[in-house]
Design a protein around this nucleic acid. Structure first.
Length: 480
RNA sequence: CGGGGUGUGGCCCAGCUUGGUAGGGCGCUUGAUUUGGGAUCAAGAGGUCGCAAGUUCAAAUCUUGUCACCCCGACCA
């Protein structure tokens, strides 16, 4: 190439060279997020926010199908309220941001910026639940929360991040348990069907459990570099919070009972997962179902008679059919536009030029495989619909293969160390269930327990660390 | 909080050892020719070299202080 040193879109650092740099490159170059003037916080740019809007729309639709309603709680929590549940305060105290003044006056009681809203929902529930007729409460809120993290990375960990947090209150423990599992499965289905990210569904160990919960369920996804990312959680609180906040109702026999609660959340972190599961050396790859722009039309020799008109007509035809389409009618060269839309991850590109107009066709290029085909303009909507579906499924299949190829069974600690030393990914191994072994495994291998999958497998009879009888098969790995 | 590194037009960097008052590439602006994988030519705009003090006839360059950012640890759903 004669102009190799004059590339207009800078190349992305190859992912096998430095995954962290590759990730940062993509975030910046695809204009998903930029640095903020507030340390540890991020600016989410329109391209990144559009992804979040699509995630919100799809999750909201699924929530509502299960009876969940949206609401909104204050951004501030009084200190006394935060401290009502002992485990909960201890879990969050180190990373809470405090407000001590209002205007020029010191506050009589300091308040914190919510790190999560359990306490606010509990306070509200304690005042609004009286009878079994008030149950269940199925509330969700979309908001941001603040956790003063020491080290931060865009989308994966920032001091303020966007999320949704669902908080439910139920009459019985069974109902709460069912809801916890239902929401976890909802998240898992969403990840697999919409984001094309295969996940491992399961339960957290006691060590990794949410502060104040009796059970925490999780979906764990495997990033391209072999590290795990917790992509959604669902907690069963039992009646612990209800006792701390005195949330009681009268049952049918007029007996006072404590409610049983759950909470569940997904954050903008999931955008980090999309990048790290699907991205490649040319940039982002977005699954069609979540892509803000699904199809980009690139006109070739656009000043020639009829080219731009055809591009706009095609766009209008596809918009009519419900596709999210844009025309790149800028005056960059076609090669520049190709590289640009590949970097931004647009699933399908359509090229139309004078030659195509003559033949009544267009060139289709898919982002996932870069495969180039020509299609007749006649009935092109149907062709594109099929192609987008195929891309969606292919991306899931590729990610699934990666997950399977990077999950290794281990029966003893030496084997486990060797795998984690030479490979990247999950290790599945048996565990006796004690905290000491879990700590020892982290000490020896650097891996933490990711989850106790619902789909249990029998790998051996004894714990991978201590050799005593095993109770559970656990996924282990290094995590983000 | 420890250990290391970097601050020079919008971006990436050279210059610093051996002081002489700033340079390249990309981008940007204007015009022309171009357009099926990252265009070409021509002209042009843009910087008190992170900040402060000191040494000197003279500091991007040397000294001291300071601030910011990055990496590795530690910490962290």
């Amino acid at each position: 190439m004669a102009n190799e040193n004059k590339k207009l879109v800078e190349d992305i650092t190859p992912m096998e060279v430095d995954f962290a740099q590759w990730y940062t490159d993509i975030v910046r170059k695809a204009e998903l997020s930029d640095y903020s003037c507030v340390k540890g916080c991020m600016v989410i740019q329109p391209a990144g926010y559009a992804l979040w809007e699509n995630i919100q729309r799809e999750l909201d639709r699924r929530f509502k199908e299960t009876g969940v309603e949206n609401c909104y709680m204050p951004v501030f929590i009084p200190e006394s309220l935060l401290q009502k549940e002992k485990d909960h305060v201890e879990g969050f105290a180190p990373e809470v941001a405090w407000v001590t003044e209002g205007g020029m006056e010191p506050l009589t009681e300091k308040i914190c910026v919510r790190p999560t809203s359990e306490t606010l929902f509990c306070d509200y529930y304690s005042r609004s639940i009286h009878s079994y007729r008030d149950l269940p409460k199925l509330y969700n809120q979309w908001c941001s929360v603040v956790r003063w993290e020491k080290t931060t990375r865009p989308f994966l960990r920032s001091r303020e991040f966007l999320w949704q947090e669902g908080h439910t209150a139920h009459a019985t423990a069974e109902e709460a348990k069912e809801r916890t599992e239902q929401m976890l499965n909802l998240y898992a289905d969403f990840c697999e069907e919409v984001l094309a990210i295969p996940v491992v569904r399961g339960q957290k160990t006691e060590k990794e459990r949410f502060a104040g919960a009796i059970a925490t369920y999780t979906i764990e996804a495997l990033m391209h570099d072999g590290k795990a990312l917790q992509s959604g959680t669902s907690h069963n609180f039992g009646d612990g919070f209800a006792r701390a906040f005195n949330i009681q109702y009268s049952d049918k026999n007029n007996q006072l009972q404590y409610v049983h609660q759950t909470s569940w959340g997904v954050s903008t972190r999931i955008i980090g997962a999309i990048i790290m599961v699907h991205g490649d050396d040319d940039g982002l790859r977005l699954p069609p179902r979540i892509a803000p722009t699904q199809v980009i039309i690139v006109p070739i020799q656009q000043k020639k008679e009829g080219v731009l008109e055809k591009a706009y007509a095609l766009r209008d035809e596809l918009l009519e059919k419900g596709f999210r389409v844009k025309v790149d009618d800028g005056d960059k060269s076609p090669g520049w536009k190709f590289a640009d839309c590949e970097m931004r991850g647009i699933p399908l590109r359509i090229e139309v030029g004078p030659r195509d107009l003559e033949n009544g066709q267009a060139v289709l290029v898919r982002r996932d495989t870069r495969e180039k085909t020509t299609a007749s303009l006649e009935g092109i909507g149907e062709t594109i619909g099929k192609l987008l579906e195929d891309i969606q499924h292919n991306m899931y299949d590729m990610a699934k293969k990666h997950l399977e190829a990077h999950t290794f069974p281990a029966t003893n600690i030496e084997e486990m160390e060797k795998i984690l030393d030479e490979q990247t990914g999950f290790v599945k191994a048996m565990w006796c269930g004690c905290r000491e072994c879990e700590d020892a495994i982290k000490e020896k291998t650097g891996a933490t327990s990711r989850c106790i999958p619902f789909a249990q497998e029998h790998i051996s009879d004894v714990c991978v660390n201590c050799g005593k009888p095993a109770t559970k098969m656990v996924y282990w790995g290094r995590a983000y």
